[in-house]
């Protein structure tokens, strides 16, 4: 085989991506499973869409292996009114759970950033629960470009 530098590079990137996304071949979570988890987290309440919760994601993630996400909830964060927890779900991952952030009044602001893995193009859902029992939800679609070589 006589590969050019460019072909070689493409092949190796493709192979690396295949390894990274190997788990995308296994059974993936369904939006129903995510809805079930949200119901359990919200304690039977219907989460209010949008509201004080903002989930920030890139529109297109070139590399599904590190997708930066940010959640922030507008809250006074006082002892009797603060955001207790924010949970993140990825509807199309093999396991929809991503992370649960727990805040306290000492957090000052209910904001957190991290980097997550996405197996394919899908919705990312964030649900927040306050100490007063309010539940907010936000949903964003992230397009994931799997594999290198513009595929």
């Amino acid at each position: 085989m006589n590969l050019t530098r460019r072909q070689m590079l493409c092949a190796s990137v493709g192979a690396a991506a295949a390894g990274v996304f190997g788990f995308s071949l296994s059974a993936s979570a369904t939006p129903e499973a995510t809805a079930e988890s949200i119901k359990n987290f919200a304690g039977g309440k219907e989460p209010a869409m949008g509201g004080d919760l903002t989930l920030t994601t890139p529109e297109i993630a070139e590399n599904g292996n590190t997708v930066p996400i940010e959640v922030s909830v507008a809250s006074p964060m006082t002892d009797d009114d603060y955001v207790e927890s924010v949970v993140i779900y990825a509807e199309g991952n093999p396991n929809p759970d991503v992370a649960v952030f727990h805040f306290t009044p000492m957090s000052g602001a209910a904001e957190a950033k991290t980097r997550m893995r996405l197996a394919k193009t899908q919705n990312v859902v964030a649900v927040a629960k306050t100490s007063k029992g309010q539940v907010f939800m936000d949903k964003k679609e992230v397009k994931v470009t799997i594999g290198g070589c513009g595929g």
């Binding site: 590190t66 997708v67 991503v98 992370a99 727990h102 805040f103 000492m106 957090s107 957190a112 980097r115």
Partner: peptide, 26 residues
């Protein structure tokens, strides 16, 4: 902070390698 909880988080396998976490504290 001084023995009192400020922030915590539970991570799942869907978090990227070399986990990066950014949050705030008063």
């Amino acid at each position: 902070f001084n023995g009192k909880p400020v922030f915590s988080c539970e991570l799942e396998p869907a978090i990227s390698a070399n986990p990066y976490i950014e949050f705030s504290a008063k």
